[in-house]
Simulated scan of single mutants.
Amino acid sequence: MIVPVRRLAALCVLGAVLTGCGTEHTSAPEPDRPAKSPAASRPPTLAPGPAGLAPVFKSGARGGGKTVALTFDADMTADQGPRAAGGERFDNPALLATLRRLKVPSTVFMTGRWAEEYPAQARAIGTDPLFEVANHSYSHYAFTSRCYGLPTVAPGKMRADVERAFAAFKKAGITNAMPYFRFPGGCYDRAALRAVGRAGVTAVQWDVVSGDAFATDSDAVADEVLRGVKPGSVVVMHCTRSAAPATERAIRKVVPELRERGYRFVRVSELIGTAGR
């Protein structure tokens, strides 16, 4: 994901583009606890759609209680290695530290290329019970022909791209990645859903766009989230320092305010697990 919110609204697409994953003390209400499930149980998914299309999840039930899932896209494209070698940071340790300090269960949609670039951070996220890791493709190339100028994955290679990301997670030490997939840019069509459906994943979109992509005003980002959140919302944000520098500061405003409103933070798996109940 990554697209400024104004452009996104103008195009009527909940999407985004390229590159997406310390601290000052603030008091907060009782922290949220990630829901526990038996170790042997499988992560919750939605039933496949007709003709094997991957199911698409956008938000939880509105009447299911005041829960909200913050999600963070750890974006890095397959060809951005030279930029990382030159000093550009596609990670955001301060954001992850703040989420830990505030004890916010979260879902990180990670590209395989990001896991390769930052294996220690990827492993730390994947082994922290506060977080869960899900798939954001290997290359962050688009799965449709028109998606904010992103390079595209050939139709015959879409499933392989998803599976390559899962393989990169395992190599980094993430052994429990969720069977969820977020399309780069949020762009998909029936052919893309059919391709990723063969990988056995549930596609996860969102219903609240934070507008943190390339934003520098953290208050504006926080206000965008606070205006949009409803019970069961999935919020899309980013954990890439270079492309979303205001996100960590925005989180420091969003989390206590939503808790004050009675919201409980959950991971995407909890929302999916209660869908339809």
Rank of each mutant, 00 (worst) to 15 (best):
residue 193 L to M: 08
residue 193 L to H: 07
residue 193 L to A: 09
residue 193 L to E: 09
residue 193 L to I: 03
residue 194 R to E: 14
residue 194 R to L: 12
residue 194 R to H: 15
residue 194 R to D: 11
residue 194 R to G: 14
residue 195 A to G: 06
residue 195 A to N: 02
residue 195 A to I: 06
residue 196 V to T: 10
residue 196 V to Q: 07
residue 196 V to G: 04
residue 196 V to N: 05
residue 197 G to A: 03
residue 197 G to V: 11
residue 197 G to F: 05
residue 197 G to Q: 05
residue 198 R to C: 01
residue 198 R to V: 02
residue 198 R to H: 08
residue 198 R to M: 12
residue 199 A to V: 07
residue 199 A to Y: 01
residue 199 A to E: 00
residue 199 A to K: 08
residue 199 A to T: 09
residue 199 A to F: 01
residue 200 G to W: 08
residue 200 G to Q: 10
residue 200 G to D: 11
residue 200 G to K: 05
residue 201 V to I: 09
residue 201 V to W: 12
residue 202 T to M: 04
residue 202 T to E: 05
residue 202 T to W: 02
residue 202 T to H: 05
residue 202 T to N: 11
residue 203 A to Q: 05
residue 203 A to K: 00
residue 203 A to L: 00
residue 203 A to H: 00
residue 203 A to N: 00
residue 203 A to Y: 01
residue 203 A to P: 01
residue 204 V to M: 03
residue 204 V to S: 06
residue 204 V to C: 03
residue 204 V to T: 11
residue 204 V to F: 04
residue 204 V to K: 01
residue 204 V to I: 14
residue 205 Q to S: 11
residue 206 W to L: 10
residue 206 W to S: 12
residue 206 W to E: 06
residue 206 W to G: 02
residue 206 W to P: 02
residue 206 W to A: 13
residue 207 D to T: 09
residue 207 D to A: 10
residue 207 D to S: 06
residue 207 D to Y: 08
residue 208 V to A: 10
residue 208 V to P: 00
residue 208 V to W: 06
residue 208 V to N: 01
residue 208 V to K: 08
residue 209 V to D: 14
residue 209 V to C: 04
residue 209 V to L: 15
residue 210 S to M: 09
residue 210 S to T: 01
residue 210 S to L: 10
residue 211 G to K: 04
residue 211 G to P: 11
residue 211 G to L: 11
residue 211 G to D: 10
residue 212 D to W: 11
residue 212 D to Y: 04
residue 212 D to A: 11
residue 213 A to T: 13
residue 213 A to P: 04
residue 213 A to C: 13
residue 213 A to D: 13
residue 213 A to L: 08
residue 214 F to A: 13
residue 214 F to K: 12
residue 214 F to R: 15
residue 215 A to Y: 03
residue 216 T to M: 08
residue 216 T to A: 10
residue 217 D to I: 07
residue 217 D to A: 03
residue 218 S to A: 15
residue 218 S to M: 05
residue 219 D to S: 14
residue 219 D to F: 04
residue 219 D to K: 12
residue 219 D to T: 14
residue 219 D to L: 13
residue 219 D to H: 12
residue 220 A to E: 09
residue 220 A to Y: 04
residue 220 A to Q: 13
residue 220 A to I: 04
residue 220 A to R: 15
residue 220 A to N: 05
residue 220 A to W: 07
residue 220 A to G: 08
residue 220 A to D: 10
residue 221 V to P: 02
residue 221 V to N: 03
residue 222 A to W: 06
residue 222 A to K: 08
residue 222 A to H: 06
residue 222 A to F: 09
residue 223 D to G: 02
residue 223 D to F: 00
residue 223 D to I: 00
residue 223 D to V: 03
residue 223 D to E: 15
residue 223 D to Y: 01
residue 224 E to R: 15
residue 224 E to L: 03
residue 224 E to S: 15
residue 224 E to M: 08
residue 224 E to K: 13
residue 225 V to F: 07
residue 225 V to I: 15
residue 225 V to C: 11
residue 225 V to W: 07
residue 226 L to W: 04
residue 226 L to K: 05
residue 226 L to T: 04
residue 226 L to V: 05
residue 226 L to H: 02
residue 227 R to V: 04
residue 227 R to M: 07
residue 227 R to W: 00
residue 227 R to P: 03
residue 227 R to Y: 02
residue 228 G to A: 06
residue 228 G to M: 10
residue 228 G to F: 11
residue 228 G to H: 09
